[in-house]
């Protein structure tokens, strides 16, 4: 039997508005914690940035491109860079929780566990977007290509959201295995093939100045992918983190 105080507490947490407020507060707490820790250690951002920079430099020297070919390969080169750098970040982000068993600390909190997922996911998205914000101007300079159109940036945003949505979910799975460093790319790349194809095709469409009708199917695919995997993460995260 619950005491009167416990009954009040039960009802307090049962109210939908209070629950939503507490849910959002938990998401922000996880996000704030990740940003503070990263600003202090800079482990994740520096490794992602250096890796991304090296990839575009290698491509720059490996592919001596004329102007027309440049517009064709730019989207591919950029998404390969984002995907690989993103994987590094995702792995590190969840490993930092697992190494000191901090994931257990998070799971002990009286919040819906999907709030932990969304907090981690938003953190990963911010770090990936920060790396992209630095990489895109550098790529623009090295390849003499204008990347700054609203459409192209929208594709980068949608693609990144999809990538970290699936990536955070799979990183949570991979981090619980002994071979977590190799497990994440093995799990992640096959699942993100539709997303990466849509992102490359959409980006290429905007860079080549194609009609919106030709690009729209890829944008629709990106949006659908993002929504489906966000919903999936909401449903399965609790089961993924439980023994």
């Amino acid at each position: 039997m619950m005491t009167e105080d416990e009954q009040i507490a039960y009802e307090k947490f049962s109210s939908p508005l209070t629950s939503l407020k507490l849910y959002l507060r938990a998401i922000l707490a996880v996000l704030g914690k990740d940003i503070t820790a990263e600003m202090r250690s800079r482990e994740l951002l520096s490794s992602m940035f250096v890796f991304a920079l090296l990839v575009i430099l290698i491509f720059n020297f490996a592919l001596e491109l004329d102007i027309s070919t440049r517009l064709t390969v730019t989207a591919g080169v950029l998404w390969v860079t984002f995907a690989f750098a993103g994987t590094l970040g995702l792995n590190r982000s969840m490993a930092s929780e697992k190494d000191r068993a901090c994931l257990d600390g998070l799971l002990l909190a009286p919040v819906d566990r999907s709030a932990i997922y969304f907090g981690k996911m938003l953190g990963n998205l911010i770090f990936m977007l920060l790396v992209e914000m630095i990489v895109l101007p550098i790529y623009s300079l090295l390849y003499n290509t204008n990347l700054f159109s609203i459409g192209f940036l929208a594709v980068v945003m949608l693609g990144s959201i999809g990538y970290v949505t699936v990536g955070t979910l799979l990183a949570t799975m991979a981090v619980q295995t002994r071979t977590r460093d190799v497990m994440l790319p093995i799990l992640l790349f096959p699942v993100t093939i539709p997303l990466l194809i849509a992102a490359v095709k959409g980006s290429m469409g905007f860079l080549q100045g194609l009609e919106m009708d030709a690009i729209r199917p890829w944008l629709n695919l990106l949006v659908s992918y993002d929504i489906i995997f966000l919903a999936l993460a909401l449903m399965v995260f609790d089961y993924l983190v439980e023994e």
């Binding site: 507060r25 707490a29 930092s96 000191r100 257990d104 600390g105």
Partner: peptide
Amino acid sequence: VVTHFPLLYGDLTAEENLRFYGRMYH
């Protein structure tokens, strides 16, 4: 819960760790 792992973040101060968990526990 106290385990043999402290469940604390090394890159945060003691105060920040407790403030973080305090927010998670409302």
